[in-house]
């Protein structure tokens, strides 16, 4: 038993080390005064200063944020509707086609999705730019959003909605007062995932964007192809910090919620025991 434990710990530590090593290296070297990766030239924040002075990079970051916000919002709404259709409306005509359309983009190589959407935009003569990227990202991320929300809805007790209606709440109001608040964590997770995927995407954006709408990954990619630069290290570190703070916050929030529930459950079971004693005595 003991040997098994040690083995497990080693496996996990090695695996996690593999996952985190590159990120840690990146963060450390973003503070390196030297331009060379192999030489530690002392602690410095000069690359961060350079980064924020880099106007094209900043502009690209702003574009990416706009695209991510718009497409994630659209994808969350559409994904919620799609999940409702899949979970709630049983078998409808074209259901399997619909399911196929949801799952195919999840595994489809990005180059194909990007190329296909570009060909569509060109053939209808749409002006390419920010909006075409938003549409492209919505298409991809709405499928991820659907899968996340669908999983939550599948385990949702329909009796809750029936109870609300039974108590006089009309169906549409029931959705907003009962269903939506209860699937909110999944909807939130779907939005976050859609946002991150959009912020992260290089390939689809490269195909579908137009003049004046260069995204952050595109800018980073074009610089990276020229070699490792400390400035990009700094940009990456900022992005990582951004994500880490966001995830940390949501983790703390859900954790405290869970702990609250755990305590409550303990209390409840104590009550139950007391109640039983009372019954036995009476």
């Amino acid at each position: 038993m003991h040997r098994g434990n040690a083995f497990r710990t080693v496996v996990l530590l090695l695996g996690l080390g593999f996952l985190y090593l590159p990120i840690v290296v990146l963060v450390i070297y973003s503070f390196n005064a030297s331009r060379l990766v192999t030489v530690w030239g002392g602690f410095s924040i000069q690359w961060y200063v350079a980064l924020f002075a880099n106007a094209p990079l900043m502009e690209a970051a702003w574009t990416s944020l706009k695209i991510a916000t718009l497409s994630a919002s659209l994808a969350t709404v559409l994904g919620t509707l799609a999940a409702l259709a899949l979970v709630r409306h049983g078998r409808f005509g074209g259901r399997s086609l619909f399911t196929g359309l949801i799952y195919a983009p999840l595994v489809m190589p990005e180059v194909i999705v990007g190329l296909a959407l570009l060909l569509l935009f060109v053939s209808v003569g749409a002006d390419r730019g920010l909006w075409t990227v938003v549409v492209a990202h919505t298409t991809l991320t709405l499928c991820f959003a659907t899968v996340i929300i669908q999983a939550r809805l599948a385990s949702f007790d329909r009796a809750l909605e029936e109870a609300a209606m039974d108590l006089g709440c009309p169906p549409a109001k029931t959705f907003f007062t009962i269903t939506l608040p209860l699937i909110a964590p999944a909807v939130g997770a779907a939005f976050l995932l859609a946002f991150t995927l959009s912020l992260d995407d290089l390939v689809i954006a490269s195909f579908t964007t137009g003049p004046g709408a260069t995204t952050l990954p595109m800018r980073i990619y074009s610089q990276v192809r020229l070699g490792v630069t400390p400035e990009i290290n700094a940009a990456c570190t900022v992005l990582i910090a951004f994500v880490a703070v966001g995830l940390g916050l949501s983790f703390i929030l859900t954790r405290s919620g869970a702990r609250h529930r755990d305590e409550a459950a303990g209390e409840a079971s104590a009550d139950a025991v007391a109640e039983r004693h009372a019954e036995v005595r009476s």
Partner: peptide, 29 residues
């Protein structure tokens, strides 16, 4: 029985989106 008309309304938007922005482009390719 109920919800079938609401169901159609709910499913038409994501469905239409995916047909226009995914199925159609694939055929175009």
């Amino acid at each position: 029985g109920r919800g079938s008309s609401g169901g159609a309304l709910v499913r038409i938007w994501p469905f239409a989106w995916l047909v226009v922005f995914f199925a159609l482009p694939c055929l175009l390719v």
